[in-house]
Design a protein around this nucleic acid. Sequence first.
DNA 1: TATTAACACGAAACCGTTTTCGAAGGGTAA
DNA 2: TTACCCTTCGAAAACGGTTTCGTGTTAATA
Lengths: 339, 339
Amino acid sequence: MKQKITLKHIARELSVSISTVSKALKNSEEISKDTKDKIQAFAKLYNYKPNNIAISLKNRRTKNIGVIIPDIVHHFFTTVFRGIENYANAKGYNVILCMSDESFDKEVINMELLANGSIDGFIMALSAETQIKNDYNHLKEVAEQGIPLVLFDRITDEIECDKVVINDMEGAYKAVTKFIEDGRKQIALITTEDYYSVSRERAKGYKQALLDHNLPYRENLVLKLPFMDVDELAINEFLDREKIDAVLCVNEIYAIHSMRHVQSKGLSIPKDISFIGFTDGILSKYSTPGLTAVSQHGEKMGAIAAEMLIEKIESEKEEETYTTTVLDTTIVARGSTNN
Amino acid sequence: MKQKITLKHIARELSVSISTVSKALKNSEEISKDTKDKIQAFAKLYNYKPNNIAISLKNRRTKNIGVIIPDIVHHFFTTVFRGIENYANAKGYNVILCMSDESFDKEVINMELLANGSIDGFIMALSAETQIKNDYNHLKEVAEQGIPLVLFDRITDEIECDKVVINDMEGAYKAVTKFIEDGRKQIALITTEDYYSVSRERAKGYKQALLDHNLPYRENLVLKLPFMDVDELAINEFLDREKIDAVLCVNEIYAIHSMRHVQSKGLSIPKDISFIGFTDGILSKYSTPGLTAVSQHGEKMGAIAAEMLIEKIESEKEEETYTTTVLDTTIVARGSTNN
DNA sequence: TATTAACACGAAACCGTTTTCGAAGGGTAA
DNA sequence: TTACCCTTCGAAAACGGTTTCGTGTTAATA
């Protein structure tokens, strides 16, 4: 096992001072060509690489970004993460990934741990529990310490910081409009409880699209499910009970399950009933028929979040101007709607 | 913006030395109760938290684990990652996640970057390109520096280190045996080229199961696809050409696509033809019919990998004993086979 | 010959901790 | 009074770098 070589080793070996070695390796003008050549050759030979930790301590910059998401086994979050990682890597940053598991406590613990010097900034999507509790003191703490923060997807108005979201309202609006243009009249919405910022927005878009096209908004065509467990029975019952010819679902799982259920009753998709689901994930692509989806462009979202964060990290000036970037959605048409 | 408080600040404020503060906060016997009380109260009031970076430099321990995987938008890898993260977090470690994007160069760059002090050990699955190139010098370098390394899933015999794999051969063997017990005779295998360690093992299990049950092994019932792009036409043609009543696929995508194709031809699953796919992912669960799957227990795999790594990191002794843990698979029966 | 500038390098401080060792001061025993 | 021992604290080194400032040497200039 060959130990990592340090400046001190090189200095001792070549009988020069540590400062000379440091400068020589940075090609400083101060050092004579002879000495530089000698030192650089030696360093290359022994594959010298500066210690990241020492540099971090000195510069008070870690070149690490902390990312906290509710769950990693989740298609949308992974695409966002990919966007973050790619951009960050290209800029020389590494990414520390933590999962909150939708738990407030885990979110707080992870943040506090990382905030003690391990990272230069945070990118995060709030956990469900945090949104329900509506407690954002851990975020405020971090902001007060001057650590840059970017929120994406699951955000809150309580915190002033950079944000990236998709235009959830517009996405739902587009989807419902497509249904209407396809001649659908009985358009249902299957969503989650309101504490999610995204669900609220999508519900708004759904309602607005109906009203703008002179269709009635009817409460009984909206099914609100509590998060966490997919209540299949509630979905089945809802689909059996109401007279419906189109369904907008706020996630893939609801949509896929609904499609299976109506298919098992002998209905034909999209002839008898058509579907659109949020998040253009893997299920939409491979279901039968393919599920028309509202694409959220997760990777782009991640890249933008990373760009905003690194911009803040690297800007010297301490201006307090925050921007919220809103990404438009795209409808990806597949077999579950008439195209 | 309130700056992070350091030992030095406390020392100056209370007119004691830095060492006294440090000791007092660790409740050292050396310091009088009065002084300790005073210092601890002050520290608590100003919410003092030691700087992770400084501690890392001092201890030469970062409490960070580097994880390098080919892709994050991939169900199996995310489940493994979840297992790693959970275990590591419980042990006080953070996880730095990098993606190699199946690229040799990215794998090398990421490893070298992290190896310079940022992490205490690596957990990784080899990129496709690395396996094709069969070049593991970057792994050897890291091992030589005494940095612990655990390989999972995509491994190699060229490197001596701890490893976790699933029993791919046994998984395929089980699946084929199930087909045979269900009365299937024309059992096909759709797999990737041989450079993947996992594909090779699965092909072995497929062959062995056939031979052990006195069925012929026929080359024309095995379709080997190059990785990266799912060649849908090749699959269709293969399914149309051969007389087949059961198909084992080495991943979900192949299986789902195959099922769609035979369904579109009017065949009934599992009556006319049945399917089993590797990786019990989200597609298997939500396809119609559900895909019987060989579960790889990714989360357990991740937990074991993390356990092995942390064990190595924290053990003082420098024994060179490496173990390979082999996880057995489980068949998760669903509608694509007769049960 | 004395002054000065350029060149090449080293000493030391610093980032924020931990830890070893030494020392001041007071108390006790001989 | 002397010797010794606790108790309690601080100085300093160390982790591995960067950077400022100073200094010795040499050569050019007055």
